[in-house]
Structure formats: structure tokens, C-alpha cells
Design a protein around this nucleic acid. Structure first.
Lengths: 240, 240
DNA sequence: CGAGTGATTGACTGGTGTCAAACCCTGTGG
DNA sequence: CCACAGGGTTTGACACCAGTCAATCACTCG
């Protein structure tokens, strides 16, 4: 699918776009860029002059820790704007890397701000996009601070599966999710041994199976119950 | 200080405001509201039609947990916009409550969006305000997931002290911070016993003392070192 | 076929949550 | 003026979760 369609689809999930807004999006010159597994798209401290939309594959945002480790903050799939905030926060306070091979489209900040001043409602949609990001971060605070380890993991799976389904990336009960256990641990704030033990536990209860980059959901309602998942914070329009 | 001055001061921390922007802010009809300790300003699930600026005192944002507990997400002082995101996210995914007696000023969403469409640069400043919020949430994820308990607590103290100092709320090495240990624990994801033990530890090392609603910083550089604090994520202009 | 990365499992131990009791302070009412 | 209640704080005892370390296994790639 072409970049403009992906963008329109995504923004329509939470915002109303007029014909003029969509026409404006079509004028963007989407600069494509391919990334290899593990490659950094943007580094902490960078001052990018363009923003990025994911066209295929997954990217992750992460903090570099003083000890050299990472704290993963969020995961993004085709349609997402993983660094929209850079439009108005000059210096990156976190990095963005590729999980597996990735295709992205770059939009120059200048082009974007010009479009926004021409069509404020388009700006509001992108603003809303960054606000939903913030809501996901809030949920991650709660997830990693207040929930048990199995709930924590189940909740992350719920969020990713729910978001991916809304964007049409789920096939049956399966989602391609190229994450290692190490990365999962660095996202959820748990040691790799615990990650594995929790994974085994969820697998044994026939709720969800995550292995070799594939997430298989056997029992969606129970996974939501275990993860205490309520999708309200994603602020998406209810699925038709 | 009057509401408009407080707002201008705050936005100037990170954004450039033109004379016209400031004039626009002066036209707002700030509806004052007083709150008692512990009172909810906004509840999870609400759909507010006005946004709020803190004029004096502290408010906190929190998630209501399924078990009835709370996860505190952020703390806000005079100048902050604790629910700016509600401008474009209709339904609140979290609540806002008062810590001690609080005075706030309400601005109707209608008035705000009208002002933004008249003066886009003012909108960008408020957008930036919400983006800095998101950056603080990201930092909180890392804090509560990847840092040791003492580091976690020190980092929170660093952030609050730094932000408060930038806004002129710090007197000498002291900051009024009406938080109970329970609330501190519900913010940092630690049990109250651990909160107290960590507090005792920090006190004993003569770095920082928090008791009965007063934070006293004895050794700022060491507190930053313990908390692994780098204020870059707050995206404030460097203090003159 | 060997090297390297990631997954899996077991053993061990320290940190931290839970529980409980005592303490302190403040406000209230007799 | 004192007794009491109640909320918050402080401290100790204890159990267990989960982090660390290490060994093994599975798989891919050169």
C-alpha cells in the first residue's frame, strides 16, 4: 500500500479528515527509507528535521540507560508515527530502532508545519496522534509499576494485538512480532529468566503463545482478563 | 500572581511567544476554582469541556486500578496544564486530584481552540506542553522499570525539584510537596515499607530529606548522581 | 562443522512485599 | 485540660518472588 493511504487510514482511526485534509496529505513527498534489523532510525540526542511514518515492519522507541542497557518504551507498526513529537521537541530524548527489516517514509518538518498551518484540522489529527502516544506511555507506567508479571506481559500483548488488529495487521489469531525475550524483558522491566517462565505459564494455560516472532492468541477474553486490559486509553473509534 | 502571567511564564519556559500570542492569552476568561485536599478535579471517564491551569498548590494524575488502588502518573504545580490532552482526547483515561488545597483556572475548550486557530504559534506552544508531558511519562516508565529503588526515588525528587525551581517554587533548598508516603509508593511502584526504608537511607546519606510535606535537598549533585538524572527530557530552555 | 546468538531450565540468594505492632501527631469532644 | 480516636509513620519478622549466575539446548550462519 502507498504511504499516503497508510497515513490516511491511521489518522482516520481517531480523527475525522476532510477531503481537503486528505488532499493535503497526498501532496507530501514521502521519502522512503529501508532499515535493517536492529538499525537505529534516530538516536538519543539527534535533532531530526523530518518525521517518519512506518510503512511495514516494526520499530521500537527506547531509552539508553547509563549502564548501557535499554528500556523499551513503545512498539510501532505500519501506520504509526514513532517520532511525531520531534516536530516540536527539537532534541530526541530517546532513540528509535528497527525490529527486523523495516520500511519507513520520511516527511520534512517544514513540509508538515506548512501543511498544518494551511489545514489546522490536519494538525489536530497529528496532535491527537501524539496524545494517544502519551496515553500509551501512561498505561505503560501503570503496567510496569502496579501489575503482576503475568498481567504485565498479557497487557502488552493485548495492546499490541488490539492495535495491530485495528490496522489490519492480524491474520487469524496470529500477529508477527519480531521481538526477542531480551527485548520483551527490557520493555516490561523483568529479567529474561522471568520473561521465559511467565511465557511458559501463559502458554500452559492455553491463553497465548509467543515464540520465534509470532504471537498466537488462543483466548482473547481471558488474555484481557489476565492483563486487566481496557482499550479505552487507545482512544480509537469503536470498530465497525 | 494572575492567571495570565502564570500561563505566559510557563509557556515561555519552552516556547517563544509573540506579543500577539500573549495578547491572545490575556483575552481568556480564566474561571477560578478551589479544591480541597484529596478532591478529584476530573475523574476517569469524564468528558471535560474545559481545560485547567494550576495557579497554586499541587495536583496529581492517576490511574484507578481494578483492585481499587491508584497508580500516580505525574505531579503538577502552579503553571502546569495537567489535562491539556483532554482538548483532543474526549474521554479521560485517568483522573486528576488535588494534593492539599489547590487553586486552578479553567479555560473552555471552545475558547482555546478558537485562540489556536487564530494564533497557530500559541497552539504549537500548548502542543509542546503536552509533548513534554509525554516525555515525562517516558522517563517515568524507565524510572519505575529499570532503576533501583533509591535511584527511583531520587530521580522523582530531582524532577520535581528541577521543575519547581524553574518555575520559582523553590525556597532555598526546600520545596513544599504535600505527598504522603503511601502516595509516594503508589507513584514509584513500591510498598510503603520500602518507601520508608529508602527514605531513611537517603536521609542518612545526607543527600535529601523528605518529611511532613517538605523536601529538603542537601546535596543536589549527589542526588542527581544517585537518581541518574539528566534534565534533557524536560526540554526546558537552559536557565539564564 | 564450529561459532554465536537466543531460549530454556535449575540452583541459589537477596530484596522486597506482606503482616503486625508500636509510635507520633493532630483534632475532637468530654 | 485531658482522653481518645484516627491517620500517617516507623520498625521488625518472615516468606517468597524474582534476579543473578551458570549450564544446556536449539538454531542459524558462515
Amino acid at each position: 500500500m502507498e504511504a499516503d493511504k497508510i497515513v490516511v487510514n491511521k489518522l482516520k482511526e481517531h480523527s475525522r479528515l476532510s477531503g481537503d485534509d486528505i488532499a493535503e496529505i497526498r501532496t507530501f513527498s514521502f521519502a522512503p527509507r529501508e532499515l535493517a534489523d536492529h538499525e537505529d532510525l534516530i538516536r538519543q540526542g539527534d535533532e531530526p528535521d523530518r518525521t517518519v511514518v512506518v510503512l511495514s515492519g516494526w520499530v521500537a522507541r527506547y531509552h539508553l540507560l547509563s549502564g548501557g542497557g535499554r528500556q523499551y518504551l513503545s512498539f510501532h507498526m505500519a501506520g504509526d508515527w514513532p517520532d511525531a513529537q520531534a516536530l516540536f521537541l527539537e532534541r530526541m530524548d530517546h532513540a528509535v530502532c528497527a525490529l527486523g527489516p523495516v520500511l519507513v517514509a520520511g516527511i520534512a518538518h517544514k513540509e508538515l508545519t506548512r501543511a498544518i498551518s494551511r489545514r489546522p484540522s490536519l494538525g489536530f489529527a497529528i496532535w491527537r496522534e501524539t496524545l494517544i502516544d502519551a496515553a500509551m506511555f501512561r498505561e505503560a507506567i501503570t503496567n510496569n509499576s502496579a501489575r503482576t508479571k503475568p498481567a504485565r506481559m498479557a497487557h502488552l500483548f493485548c495492546e499490541l494485538f488490539y492495535r495491530a488488529r485495528a490496522l489490519g495487521h492480524v491474520r487469524g489469531d496470529q500477529l508477527q512480532l519480531p521481538l526477542s525475550l531480551i527485548q520483551l524483558g527490557e520493555a516490561l522491566g523483568m529479567a529474561i529468566a522471568t520473561v521465559n517462565r511467565t511465557l511458559v505459564e501463559l502458554r500452559a494455560s492455553r491463553v497465548v503463545d509467543f515464540r520465534s516472532g509470532t504471537l498466537t492468541v488462543h483466548n482473547w477474553p481471558r488474555m484481557c482478563a489476565i492483563g486487566d486490559f481496557d482499550p479505552g486509553y487507545l482512544h480509537l473509534k469503536p470498530p465497525r
